[in-house]
Design a protein around this nucleic acid. Structure first.
Lengths: 259, 259
DNA sequence: GAGTGGTCTAGACCACCGG
DNA sequence: CGGTGGTCTAGACCACTCA
């Protein structure tokens, strides 16, 4: 039986029982399985906040897994901000309130995860020549046709955000119903387009008259804004969005980790 | 001489000359040196947007460096959103406009990097008993003394942000002058406190009368808000901040990468 | 089938921390 | 000093993509 001290005593740890479900023959990488098990143990309190983890070498030996694989699993959780490593000391669970992580996903899935029922009105859907800015961002010649969308997103029936997007013309065949019943990223994924990188900028400004009308707030009231350019896994821009949110109903959460 | 095709032709690449400066005996990790060289090559156009990188195995052989080390260097840049990898295809430079990355750093250093001269007014600096919320966030008992700060941050002489922070009492000895001439994170680092994780939430609201006066905007005008809790490398909370920014002068930029 | 990245192993040595 | 994480090596096999 292995032990993991908390700095003062060397108590036996429940971690000994956590790793019985490793599947070495399946498609899921070992490091991923290990990371998920540890993450779940943190989430349900089996690994309390502030506790020191078993060291990498002994954990690897105990599970019959090489140290680089163990390290990779732990690194995933360090990157998520759940663990902290210190040379010469050990690895600890970060002491913190529960916070959801910030991922590359659309608003729709974000609302789904938060159990806020998302729905969508399709306000505008047109094919128009790209203006200079859109053309530059999407890396197409100016004046070439692009798909332009304007949607109103609700959460639990309450208007939450005005979503304005431009996409290359190859996406013009997207069905209206898909846009109404799914998130844009879900639709793109269904067409085999995987988003792998996105750059976004979050700011604020006063609402325009139309935004105020759509969102049910006065003109000039504060809205939270986000501009995002998303790139395919071959590095090409597939979507440019300019969105605004009701700030009392939505905010951006994120975790930052020091290299 | 090695070659790296761009998908159509197999042209010789200038990358052959890029890796002459590797220092194997110094303190800087090899993977870090390699990542920096590639990043610089992307930044100055030596590795143009969309180009395919030399494959991992051959790059490793050519440099006399093992493949895991090469992979780690490339992974750093994938995490920064500069490169995209596809199995069976190769590694490409992401096609994108130049964007600064989003790091765990304070506003002060952020402004410095952007060559916007940051200065600070210290409006409030007091030791007060922690209210319930602050106590919970900082993981101290309610009513225990904490250091409370209120600062006004300028960029190029223009008021930019109202910064409100609470810190554990051990930081009460921070000098006023340090707070006026440096960023909070710089001061903490100077005291040997390294921030390693932070959770933040970005939103918007209307400015209060006082915020409007300080920032030179009307009461009720939109401000961008950020709340952040920062944790030490031993996992303890060291700072809680509640800030608001003039949205015409500041916004948050970030890069998101799909797992 | 050839070439690519994705995963994994079994070691090694080092740097840093605490007692 | 012993224990920890940080780096690095030299291989291996697999999954995927494209011609």
């Amino acid at each position: 039986m292995s032990t993991t001290g908390n700095g003062e005593v060397g108590e036996p740890l429940p971690t000994g029982d956590l790793f019985l479900r490793l599947d070495r023959s399946g498609r899921i990488p070992l490091y991923y399985q290990i990371a998920e098990i540890i993450e779940a143990a943190i989430a349900d309190g089996t690994l309390p906040t502030g506790i020191r983890l078993e060291n990498e070498v002994s954990l690897g030996e105990r599970l019959g897994i090489s140290r680089p694989t163990i390290r990779r699993a732990i690194q995933e959780l360090v990157n998520k901000g759940l663990l902290v490593r210190r040379r010469g000391i050990g690895t600890q669970v970060v002491q913190r309130p529960v916070t959801r992580k910030f991922e590359l996903s659309g608003l729709y899935d974000d609302l789904l995860r938060g159990s806020r029922n998302p729905t969508t009105d399709l306000l505008v859907r047109e094919v128009v020549p790209a203006d200079a800015e859109t053309a530059k961002i999407l890396s197409v010649p100016e004046g070439v046709d692009v798909l332009h969308l304007r949607r109103l997103r609700y959460a639990d029936g309450v208007p939450l955000a005005v979503l304005e997007n431009s996409l290359p013309i190859e996406f013009a065949s997207i069905a209206d119903d898909d846009l109404r019943t799914r998130g844009l990223y879900g639709v793109l994924q269904g067409r085999g387009t995987q988003i792998s990188v996105a750059y976004q900028q979050v700011g604020a400004r006063g609402a325009t008259a139309e935004e105020g009308r759509l969102l049910g707030i006065p003109e000039g009231a504060a809205v939270l804004t986000m501009e995002r350019t998303a790139y395919n896994n071959d590095g090409r821009a597939v979507e440019f969005g300019r969105h605004c949110y009701r700030p009392d109903l939505y905010s951006f959460e994120m975790t930052l980790v020091n290299s």
